[in-house]
């Protein structure tokens, strides 16, 4: 990247020194962009310094491909499908953790995000709340879970609580941002018709913010599913716990099977949640294959009906 940005000045300068002998119109000299160049130099230095200073034995890299192939072979040739029922049970626990945590987070964050909305509450209430959201967003779920261990012990419930607390931060922020970005028209209309603050909220703000907020809730659920797998890795139960146990005891064929399960389940949940989100925002279902077929048949039907209309007009 640095080489690309540095080159043009070198070629630009000779042209700028004097009038060209040939009659061709002279090219304007390229701007210098001194600031950009300084930034690139600083970035390069920082990266090089990081590489140079970090305490790593880089010769481990040489044996890595061989090791990787070895372990991948152990994992996936073949994966231990006999443990699949256990894995599915553990996955359900993880999903339950994510669902319950997200729901709890929604229940708590919804009123809080209303309190943090500009135009509804004075700044004294708003800013501390926003600060709390920011702090919760900055602390990773795993750290929250580590903190909660002392309170409830190492159970799936702890994991769900950690997810709930973590999701308050993001949901709170998304909530007040979508409440603030609604169209002012309905609010004005409600105010003009003499609505109370609560009624303005219900009919002026909520109706327009609703689809966005629902979509955020679903999106947060997707994130929570990933987080719940991670929480299992520190012992909160579910698929993550099963994974880390099998990694520790080096049962690689089970690890391979579990990885496939994690990937497939995450993809399925993303697809499902994406479909529901599409339904909420666009108002109709978008099923990957069905929609394409339906669109095609709808096009055909439309062209047929146009034909019919033409013949009817005749």
């Amino acid at each position: 990247m640095t080489a690309v940005t540095a080159r043009p000045t070198g070629t630009g300068r000779p042209g700028a020194t004097g009038p060209t002998a040939s009659g061709a119109p002279q090219r304007p000299s390229k701007p210098l962009h001194l600031g950009t160049k300084v930034i690139w130099v600083v970035v390069t230095i920082v990266v090089v310094a990081a590489f140079w200073s970090i305490d790593i034995s880089w010769d481990a890299l040489l044996t890595l491909p061989q090791k990787l192939v070895h372990y991948l072979g152990l994992m996936f040739l073949p994966p231990a499908w006999s443990k699949l029922p256990d894995a599915l049970g553990a996955t359900m626990l993880s999903v339950a953790m994510a669902w319950f945590g997200t729901l709890l987070g929604i229940v708590i964050s919804f009123p809080l995000s209303l309190l943090a909305t500009r135009g509804l509450m004075p700044a004294v209430v708003r800013w501390p709340l926003r600060g709390v959201f920011a702090v919760l967003r900055a602390v990773p779920e795993v750290v929250i879970a580590v903190l909660m261990l002392s309170v409830t012990g190492l159970t799936a419930f702890t994991g769900a609580l950690a997810i709930a607390i973590g999701s308050i931060g993001t949901l709170g922020k998304w909530g007040y941002e979508s409440f603030e970005s609604v169209d002012r028209g309905p609010i004005e209309a409600a105010t003009a018709a003499g609505a109370s603050r609560l009624q303005i909220m219900r009919w002026g703000v909520w109706t327009s913010a609703k689809p966005d907020v629902y979509a955020f809730w679903l999106y947060r659920f997707e994130i929570s599913v990933r987080a719940s797998a991670i929480l299992g890795l520190i012992g909160a139960g579910g698929i993550g716990k099963m994974l880390v146990d099998n990694i520790q005891f080096r049962v690689w064929d089970v690890v391979g099977m579990l990885m496939i399960v994690v990937v497939v389940v995450t993809m399925i949940i993303d697809q499902l949640s994406g479909m529901v989100r599409h339904r909420i925002i666009e108002g109709r279902w978008e099923l990957p294959v069905v929609t394409a077929l339906r669109r095609r048949s709808a096009k055909r039907a439309r062209s047929e009906s146009v034909d019919l209309k033409i013949t009817a007009d005749d």
Binding site: S57, W58, A60, Y71, A229, L233, L243, I247, M267
Partner: peptide, 23 residues
């Protein structure tokens, strides 16, 4: 596929394959 594996899972895998540490 790469995206749907959580980061902590990658980490625990590489720790067992490469060993503990920054690499």
């Amino acid at each position: 596929v790469v995206r749907s594996v959580p980061d902590l899972l990658y980490a625990s895998l590489f720790v067992t394959v490469v060993g503990t540490g920054a690499l």
